[in-house]
Design a protein around this nucleic acid. Structure first.
Length: 666
DNA sequence: CGGGACAACGTTTTT
DNA sequence: CGTTGTCCCG
């Protein structure tokens, strides 16, 4: 490759040679973003404008310029995103790029907090509560505070967890969340506050952190310990944050603190693609960034390299319907292309038939299945299609929605491992003990207390005197756990032994145990890759494999699969052809997600994100005559976000069924 | 006090 | 549809 000489005047005197011809392969805006290395930098990157490319080249540029890879911190939305970027940077430059510290805010927090746990009063490490664990803990405390009195309608544990989490992520008091989003529970506000206090105390006491705590404690660590802050700031001399529009207040604070001493921080985002406000994200962070770092340089990436003009035109109409006006204007040089279509189907079955048929045809035309995606608002909206695809033997992988790590049998197995990692963890103890015959909440609590007060960790089980009622089951359990007293078995071996112990329980508990046993085997295979139990458990909590088991297994031998994905999980990705199914008013925006203007706006941005995933073909489909149980109404209009768009921008299609029963298009 | 049977419910999106 | 709440029996 031809060497490229930097023309930047400031560097002219010490002209350097780079192996990558940055200026030739990047557009001027991208080039500026890639070569602005020092000082605060805000990049507003429209959909398909080469954001990932820019980040990748910037990593390479930093490393090539002599910055030690370990001092670059790349914070992304998913671990997959950072891995992908670093892999690409490695291809561009060399394997030094693999040494860059990359991951999500949560995984970075986990990593850092494990080092400094004692500073925060977590003497023996901590276990991470996933969402379901957190709900269980809340439920337990609700019972303990006697808030579940008969005849009283108290919020669902799921709702409660939501309220607490939102308060943390938006950095506002719990009362305010209740007042604003759950006004009908105002009468319970006092009790909810008590419960919230109890929950915080409980987690602290038992060395537990939920997702939000990871961020809270990281911020607290940085704020309260100047030495730690300086050391971390020194370690990570260059910070890059992707998807900045989807960070929340806490995350913005963490970035501010980390970069406080050197200000070498680059954030990339697009306010019109903010889709996580529901969990406390604030695209205001983008606007506020220059206020936090006054000498911020702003770069806008507005040229779209992904989509054809017809697709971009529809996307622009959609985003124009927002009340919030976004200043960025996307343009493309790909002028020609098929116009996007709005496809009306008689019912959900017909919609599925259409998509499957069309996928089949595209496949015949030579489009790879893996270059086609079907996107939807919510996971359940693809059920009909999944059946149809199975019927036609079209291989697919489903991303988002259902997480098999959260299924009961896998949580059962992991709970056994968690009590080994942290014998203080009452949530896991509770879960494990309740599996035993004749042990309920009461007995489980007694046993747990006994183990804790023995002070001997898992060995404390030996000191328990089981009641005759459950002695048999308990002794089996105790015997199984005794195997691990000697410590430091390989993760997979622990898992295998526990799975063997758990098998009879599985068979008793679930009718479909053969299928579930297969799932467990797969989890065991994942364990094989881990040295440390703690590490395994953290990863399973923070970055669980998010496709279902069958699909993961399929991926091993078949790489050509149609992608089915929630729009949230499709963020940052692109395909040759995109179907957005059930673009139906009442489903998208969903009736329950359209309670106020802000929520509707977010739904609209979601539709925009979905539309801008397409490179060549874009189909919106919607079934009519859908009965909505919630409202008791029949849904038959297309989503308000695409309804009434001029026909030369969005072509209306109707489906007809031919005499053989095959539907077709005219 | 635990367990099982049964009814009711509410139902996104994710670290 | 699968989970959660309730009731009643052992």
């Amino acid at each position: 490759m031809k060497p490229y000489y930097i023309k930047d005047e400031r560097r002219e005197s010490k002209e350097r040679t780079f192996s990558i011809p940055y200026k030739d392969v990047l557009n001027p805006a991208q080039y500026e973003a890639v070569t602005t290395l020092d000082g605060p930098l805000l990049v507003i990157a429209g959909a398909g404008s080469g954001k990932t490319r820019t980040l990748t080249y910037r990593v390479a540029r930093l490393v090539e310029g002599g910055v030690p890879p370990g001092s670059i911190l790349l914070l992304t939305f998913t671990r997959k995103a950072s891995q992908e970027m670093l892999r690409r940077a490695t291809t561009l430059l060399d394997e030094r790029c693999e040494k860059v510290a990359g991951g999500t805010f949560h995984s970075f927090a986990n990593f850092t907090l494990r080092r400094y746990a004692q500073k925060l009063g977590f003497e023996s490490g901590f276990n991470i509560l996933d969402r379901a664990d957190a709900e269980d803990a809340i439920d337990l405390l609700r019972a303990r505070l006697q808030l579940n009195v008969k005849g009283r309608r108290f919020p669902h544990k799921r709702t409660i967890a939501n309220v607490f989490s939102k308060a943390v992520n938006k950095a506002v008091p719990v009362e305010e969340i209740i007042l604003k989003d759950y006004a009908h529970f105002m009468k319970d506000a006092a009790d909810l506050l008590r419960l919230c206090d109890a929950y915080q105390t409980y987690k602290k006491k038992h060395c537990l952190m939920d997702y939000d705590d990871l961020l809270i404690y990281l911020k607290a660590l940085l704020e309260g310990n100047q030495d730690v802050r300086e050391r971390l700031s020194q370690t990570y001399g260059y910070i890059m944050v992707d998807e900045y529009q989807d960070t929340n207040k806490l995350q913005a604070d963490i970035v501010r603190l980390l970069a406080a001493t050197h200000h070498n921080v680059m954030v990339v985002g697009d306010d019109s693609q903010s889709i996580y406000a529901f969990r406390g994200a604030s695209f205001g962070n983008i606007m506020d960034f220059p206020k936090i770092f006054p000498d911020t340089k702003i770069v806008k990436l507005e040229e779209n390299y992904r989509s054809t003009q017809p697709i971009l035109s529809v996307a622009n109409v959609i985003i124009d319907r927002a009340r919030e006006k976004y200043t960025k204007v996307l343009f493309t040089q790909k002028k020609d292309g098929a116009p996007p279509a709005l496809v009306t189907a008689e019912d959900e079955d017909m919609q599925a038939q259409f998509v499957a048929q069309r996928v089949f045809e595209l496949r015949e035309e030579g489009v790879s299945l893996s270059d086609i995606a079907v996107l939807f608002r919510a996971s359940y909206l693809s059920f009909d299609l999944e059946i149809e695809l199975n019927r036609r033997n079209i291989p697919f992988v489903k991303v988002g929605g259902f997480k098999f790590m959260e299924t009961a049998h896998i949580k059962d197995l992991l709970a056994h491992m968690k009590i080994l990692a942290n014998p203080q963890d009452p949530v896991s103890w509770h879960r494990v003990l309740l599996l035993l015959e004749s042990i309920g909440p009461k007995a489980a609590d007694e046993i747990f207390q006994g183990v804790v007060s023995s002070g001997a960790g898992i060995r404390g089980l030996a000191t328990i005197e089981p009641k005759p009622r459950y002695a048999n089951a308990f002794n089996k359990f105790r015997q199984a756990m005794a195997d691990f007293e000697t410590d430091h078995l390989p993760v997979a071996e622990i898992g295998t032994k526990l799975a063997r112990y758990y098998q009879p329980i599985l068979e008793k508990k679930f009718d479909d145990y053969p299928k579930r046993a297969k799932d467990l085997e797969h989890v065991l295979a994942i364990m094989d890759r881990y040295e440390s139990l703690e590490r395994f458990l953290s990863d399973m909590a923070l970055e669980p494999p998010n496709a279902s088991i069958d699909n993961i297994l399929a991926t091993d031998y078949d790489d050509e699969q149609l992608v089915l994905s929630t729009i949230h999980s499709a963020k940052g990705l692109e395909w040759h052809t995109v179907f957005i199914i059930s673009a139906l008013e009442g489903r998208f925006p969903a009736a329950y997600a359209a309670r106020n203007d802000e929520e509707v706006e977010e739904e609209l941005r979601l539709m925009y994100v979905a539309a801008t995933r397409a490179k060549e073909n874009l189909f919106f489909t919607y079934p009519i005559e859908i009965f909505d149980r919630g409202t008791g109404m029949v849904l038959s209009r297309p989503s308000r976000f695409i309804d009434g768009i001029s026909e030369d921008i969005l072509e209306p299609w109707s489906l007809v069924t031919d005499y053989q029963g095959n539907e077709d298009v005219w």
